[in-house]
Design a protein around this nucleic acid. Structure first.
Lengths: 191, 191
DNA sequence: CGTTTTAGGTAGACCGGTATATCTACTTTA
DNA sequence: TAAAGTAGATATACCGGTCTACCTAAAACG
C-alpha cells in the first residue's frame, strides 16, 4: 500500500483525482467532463476513482465541498490585519478578482456547478447553497457590528460579488470588479 | 403544406418546437434536455426538428436569440410612461422579479445557458454576451443623460441585476430583489 | 531476515443506457 | 401535385459503471 490509511481517507490516487477534477470541472463544468477525462488527466486508472468514490456525483460533491472549505478559509485568513471596514470589504472583491483573469474563466465555480445539474435536488446544489450562505455570513461578520442595516448591506455586497464574477465571464460589463468595488464603497458610506 | 413559407422561415412545427424548447431549456438547461424530450413535448416528429433546424445547437441558438429579442423588447416597451429615473430603474428589477417566483426557476436563463456549454466558443455564448451588452445599454439609456458617472452606474445596476437573479436561485440571500432595489436606489441617489 | 499477506493501483474488456442524427416509407393537406 | 409532417428503425458515439486479472510494495510475522 502506498500510504498508511490514518483514519481519514487518504491515498495518492484520491488526492490526484480531487486536484485534477477540480481543475477540469472549473474549466468546463462537471457535466461536460467524463470520468475518462478525469482519470486520464490524473494519470490514474478508472478503477482508482471507484475505489475512492462511490460515483461521479460523489467525486463532484467532494470536489466542491473541498473548494468551498478552502475558499472560505482563504477569506477568513485574509483580514487579520488592521484594515478599515471598507478596506476589508474591498479586499474581498480583489481576492476573487485574481482568478478572473486566467484563461477559461467561467465565473464563480459554484454558480457554474449548480447551473449544470438538471435540477436542484442533488448534493452539489446543497453544497453551493451552503457556500453562498456562509459567504454572506462572512461578509456580515466583516461589517461593523454597530452598523445600521448591517444585514442588508451584507446581502448587497454578496449580490455585487455574484454580479462581478458573472460579468467577468459574460463581459457585458467592461471592468466588473472596479464597478462593483465602487458600488460597494458607495453603499458602505451612505447606508 | 401547413403554412405558406413567406420569405421568413415559418411553420407550425417550427413555432411549436421553439416554444416547447424554450420552456424545457429554461427549466432544466439545454444540455439536460434531449431532442426526444423536445419533440415529444411539442407533439411533433423528430424529423420535423431536423427539417427546420440543422442541429440541436442551431435550435438552441434560435431559442435564446428569440428570448433575448423578446426580453429586450419587453423592457423597451415598459418605460414609455412618465416615471422618474429611479422608478424606471426599479421597475426593471420588478420586471425580472416576476419570473423568479415560479417553480423550477434557475436564475437568468442566459447565464444558465452560457454556463451549460463546455466552453465559450459556441453560438450560444455569443448570443448571451450580446444580450448582456444590450441590457447594459438599455439601462444606460434609461439613466438621465445629465448624470455624472452614467456609464458606471449602468454597470453597477447590471451587476445588481445579475446578482439578484442568481441569488433568487441559490438562496444565499433571503430577498435578493428587495436588497438589490435598495442598493440601486442608494447608488442612484448618491452618485 | 526473509517470507507471506494484503491493500492500493493498473489496464482493458465489457455492459446498459442514452444522446444526436440519419434514412425510409407513409400520410396529410393546401 | 408537392411540401410538410409522421413513425419508427437505425447508425454512431459516448457516458457512467462493473468486472477481471495482474502488478507492486509496504507491512506483518515466524
Amino acid at each position: 500500500m502506498q500510504q498508511r490509511n490514518d483514519g481519514v481517507r487518504r491515498s495518492v490516487g484520491r488526492d490526484r483525482l480531487l486536484a485534477t477534477a477540480r481543475r477540469l470541472f472549473t474549466r468546463h463544468g462537471a457535466s461536460n467532463v467524463g470520468i475518462n477525462d478525469v482519470t486520464a488527466a490524473a494519470g490514474v486508472a478508472r478503477m482508482t476513482l471507484y475505489n475512492n468514490f462511490p460515483s461521479k456525483e460523489a467525486l463532484t460533491a467532494a470536489v466542491y465541498e473541498e473548494m468551498a472549505c478552502a475558499t472560505l478559509q482563504g477569506l477568513r485568513e485574509m483580514d487579520a490585519s488592521n484594515l478599515s471596514e471598507e478596506e476589508r470589504i474591498l479586499a474581498i472583491f480583489d481576492h476573487f478578482d485574481r482568478s478572473e483573469h486566467e484563461a477559461d474563466y467561467r465565473g464563480c465555480p459554484f454558480i457554474h456547478a449548480s447551473l449544470q445539474a438538471a435540477d436542484a435536488s442533488g448534493p452539489v446544489y446543497a453544497i453551493v447553497h451552503s457556500y453562498k450562505h456562509d459567504l454572506r455570513e462572512h461578509i456580515f461578520q466583516v461589517l461593523d457590528e454597530t452598523r445600521r442595516n448591517r444585514a442588508e448591506v451584507a446581502d448587497q455586497i454578496l449580490l455585487l460579488l455574484d454580479g462581478a464574477v458573472t460579468e467577468a465571464y459574460l463581459k457585458g460589463v467592461a471592468d466588473p470588479t472596479t464597478a462593483a468595488k465602487h458600488a460597494a464603497a458607495t453603499l458602505l458610506r451612505s447606508t
